[in-house]
Simulated assay, not measured.
Amino acid sequence: MLKKTFPALLTACLLSACITSPTGRSQLVFMPDTQIDQMGLQAFDNLKKQKPVSTNSQYNQVASCIAGAITRETGGNWEVVVFEDASPNAFALPGNKIGVHTGMLTLVDNQDQLAAVIGHEIGHVLAKHSNERASQEMAVSSGMGIIQAVSAPQTVLGQTALGMLGVGAQYGILMPYSRVHESEADMIGVDLMAKAGFDPRQSVGLWQKMEQASQGKQPIEFMSTHPSHATRIQDLEKRMPQAMGLFQQAQAQGKQPRCN
C-alpha cells in the first residue's frame, strides 16, 4: 500500500514545493525545516566530538565577533566553534551552527576576508541549500532513510546525509555544494558582510589568497562542482557596486566592526 501511495504523496509535495531563493532563483524545497535543522544540530554535535575544539582565546574572540556582526543582520541565535584544523575552511549548518578552522584564521589577512568566508557559509543556510539537496535526493530516490542517517556518519548513507548539509569533503564526504549553490552563496555572503559593515572588496582579496593557497591544484572548472577562483572573482567584481552601496549605508549607520 505504501509503495502505491508514496509516489502520489511525493507528487503532491513537488507540486507545492517551489520556493524562491534570496537571489530570486526557483528552488525545489519540500522537506520540513525542522527536520533539516535537526540534522544540522546532530551533525554539529558529532563534529564537536570528533574534532578538537580550539582553546585559543584570540581565535575564538575574532570568529565570534565577526559572526556576531553578520548574524545580527540575519537574526537568530548562532553558535560559533573554532576547530583545530590546519585546512583553510569554514562551514555553516542548518540549526544556526558555524564552524571555522584555525587554518582559515591563519590564512586570511584581516577581519573583512574572514567576514567574506563566514558570510558565504551563512548564505548557504539562508538559501536553504541543504533542504534543496535533500529534497532533490528524496524526489529522485525516495530515500526516507536520509533523515535518520546523519546520526550514523560512518555509514555511506550517513556520509551522503552529511554531504547534503554541506559539511564538506574534508570529512570524507563526496558531495560538495554545486556550482549554482556556491555562486549564490557568494552573492548572498558579499551583501551580508557589507550590510554588517565589513569591506566587501576584501571578498575578492580572499579568493585571490585561496587561489594562491591552492597552488594550481584546483581542478579545471567543468570537472568541478565549485566555480573556479577566477570565475568567483569575476562574479564578485560584477556584484561589487551593489555591495559597496550596502557597505556605505552600513558605515553611515555607524556599523564599523573592530574584530581584529
Rank of each mutant, 00 (worst) to 15 (best):
K3Y: 15
F6Y: 15
F6N: 08
A8F: 10
A12I: 07
C13M: 13
L15N: 06
L15F: 08
C18G: 08
S21N: 04
P22E: 03
T23L: 15
R25Y: 07
Q27H: 13
P32S: 03
Q35R: 03
I36W: 01
I36N: 00
D37H: 07
Q38D: 10
M39R: 03
Q42K: 15
Q42G: 12
F44S: 08
N46A: 12
L47A: 13
Q50H: 14
V53N: 10
V53P: 04
S54P: 04
N56E: 07
S57P: 03
S64I: 07
I66L: 12
I66F: 05
I70Y: 04
E73F: 09
T74R: 11
T74N: 04
G76Q: 05
W78M: 01
A86M: 13
A86I: 13
A86N: 14
S87A: 15
N89I: 06
A90R: 00
A90M: 08
A90S: 07
F91W: 13
A92E: 06
L93M: 14
P94V: 09
P94Y: 11
G95V: 01
K97G: 02
I98Q: 01
G99K: 00
V100F: 01
H101G: 00
T102A: 03
T106G: 13
L107T: 05
D112H: 12
D112Q: 06
A116K: 01
V117I: 13
G119K: 00
G119F: 00
H120W: 02
E121P: 05
I122V: 14
G123S: 08
V125S: 03
V125L: 05
L126P: 04
A127F: 05
K128H: 15
K128P: 02
H129F: 02
S130C: 10
N131A: 15
E132C: 08
R133H: 11
A134Q: 09
Q136P: 08
G143N: 15
M144Q: 13
M144S: 14
M144Y: 13
Q148V: 07
Q148M: 14
V150A: 06
S151G: 10
S151P: 07
A152H: 11
T155A: 09
T155M: 07
G158S: 05
G158K: 01
G158C: 06
T160R: 12
L162D: 02
M164Q: 09
G168M: 05
Y171F: 15
L174A: 15
M175D: 09
P176K: 06
S178H: 06
S178T: 14
S178P: 01
H181D: 09
D186T: 08
M187S: 12
M193D: 01
G197R: 01
P200L: 09
R201Q: 13
G205W: 00
K209R: 12
M210K: 03
E211F: 11
S214T: 11
Q215W: 06
Q215K: 14
Q215G: 11
Q218H: 14
P219G: 08
P219F: 08
I220F: 14
E221K: 04
M223P: 00
S224Q: 02
S224M: 04
T225S: 12
P227F: 04
A230S: 14
Q234S: 11
E237C: 04
R239E: 13
M240G: 04
Q242C: 05
M244T: 06
M244I: 12
F247S: 00
Q249W: 03
A250S: 08
A250D: 03
Q253K: 14
G254V: 03
N260I: 04
